[in-house]
Amino acid sequence: MDTPSTLLKSTILSFVIFWSVILTEKEIPLDAIPYMFLSLIPIFLCCMFTICLTVAPFYWSKNEKTAFKTIYNNCFPFYAIALFGVCSLVLITSNFEMSIVAFTASAFFTLLKSWTWIIKPSKTELNEAL
């Protein structure tokens, strides 16, 4: 697992989704755009904690008997459904407030995508295995 690369990609994806949603609702003055990038720090921290606590353990659970594909097949569907449930609950309780919509949308897509980054074997790995 390439942790720094995964965290970097997750942070960028989260940042893009979060601000894309926010910018559709609110106009941000040009002067404030540099400050927007400060949000990369909390986004990075959120990504680090959630990925390390909820996705990485599945990668670490791999042993000689189980393949990544098996882990993915057995765990990812239930992870996705549980994540969807939690995100929906947060959205409903917040009465679809825009900042919460942005947060949950970025969390949902980033966490699901991070599974692919962490567990999916790269083409290079596949070729080397062959």
Partner: peptide, 11 residues
């Protein structure tokens, strides 16, 4: 919920 990611994984 996650059909896109599933199909993306199953190369």
């Amino acid at each position: 919920i996650a059909g896109f990611f599933h199909r993306n994984f199953h190369i």
